[in-house]
């Protein structure tokens, strides 16, 4: 692929999203091209540094009238994509509600609040309540690792940690096991505990979780509630961030004296 943007953004290589023309590079997915062009499509299991997965289904759009995941469907010249429509957003709200009731998502007690992508999507789509009957599943917390919490109550089974550990860290610490509603992330260690796994705080798998299931310890409130990623603007207004973010999703820096400077 050429370095020159002009040569790859051949005029033939465009498609439309809600009527807006979007250029793409051959091989890009619809979501990838959209984010680079500044067009927001809701998503949860996608990360620009990882291979497409297509499990959360929040990015479901219609492509030439047919439903498809924007994160796995390849961009093609002339495609007509519908994205920001009331019907599609209604479906996305239902998917979010499904995710909220199948786990134990208690935002007031979660240190990810404000940086959580599930919560941010819910805010943006104006999801006011989880709506369905809560499953209140029993999922133990694993606090055994010296530097990382594992709280599967908040897991949304996006497998970002599975992919990051396997494809970026080369460790395969996490794996989604089980079936159906009984699916759960398991840790590759003889005891099943994180402390006995190969996970290190420097691993990208320790920082990729879009929700509060995998969290680095001791930095939870270094950035106060109210000053976090999705507090300033809703996620749909942070397309540039979504397109260019790297893992960790947000670097946690110690508080400095330069505030207000």
């Amino acid at each position: 692929m050429s370095d020159s943007m002009n040569s790859v953004f051949d005029s033939a290589n465009t498609f439309t999203i809600d009527g807006r023309r979007v250029p793409f590079k051959p091989g890009q997915t619809i979501l990838h091209a959209a984010l680079e062009a500044g067009v927001y499509i809701p998503h949860l299991c996608h990360h620009p540094e990882l291979k497409p997965h297509g499990s959360c289904k929040l990015c479901t759009v219609t492509v030439n009238g047919r439903n498809g995941s924007a994160c796995t469907a390849r961009a093609m010249p002339g495609l007509e994509v519908e994205n920001d429509t009331p019907a599609l957003n209604d479906r996305r709200r239902v998917l979010l509600q499904m995710l909220f009731v199948e786990g134990n998502h208690f935002c007031p007690g979660c240190e990810k609040s404000g940086n959580c992508q599930l919560q941010a999507l819910a805010y943006d789509l104006e999801m006011l309540a989880p709506h369905f009957r809560h499953a209140f599943p029993e999922r133990p917390v694993d606090a055994s690792h010296p530097d990382v919490w594992l709280d599967l109550n908040r897991c949304v089974m996006c497998e970002l940690c599975v992919r990051a550990s396997r494809d970026l860290d080369g460790k395969s610490v996490f794996m989604l096991a089980g079936r159906g509603a009984e699916s759960k992330v398991v840790v590759n260690s003889p005891t099943g505990l994180l402390k006995d796994s190969a996970l290190s705080i420097d691993d990208r798998a320790a920082h990729v979780c879009p929700v509060g299931a995998i969290l680095p310890k001791r930095v939870g409130y270094a950035v106060p509630i109210g000053e976090r990623q999705f507090d300033q603007a809703t996620i749909s207004h942070q397309v540039d961030y979504l397109a260019r973010r790297t893992i960790p999703i947000k670097a946690v820096e110690p508080a400095t004296e330069t505030e207000g400077a």
């Binding site: 499904m98 199948e102 499953a135 949304v156 699916s183």
Partner: peptide, 12 residues
């Protein structure tokens, strides 16, 4: 159990 709508939807 791979995708949200089927995993959660069949249960609901």
């Amino acid at each position: 159990g791979f995708c949200t709508p089927c995993r959660a939807g069949t249960a609901l």
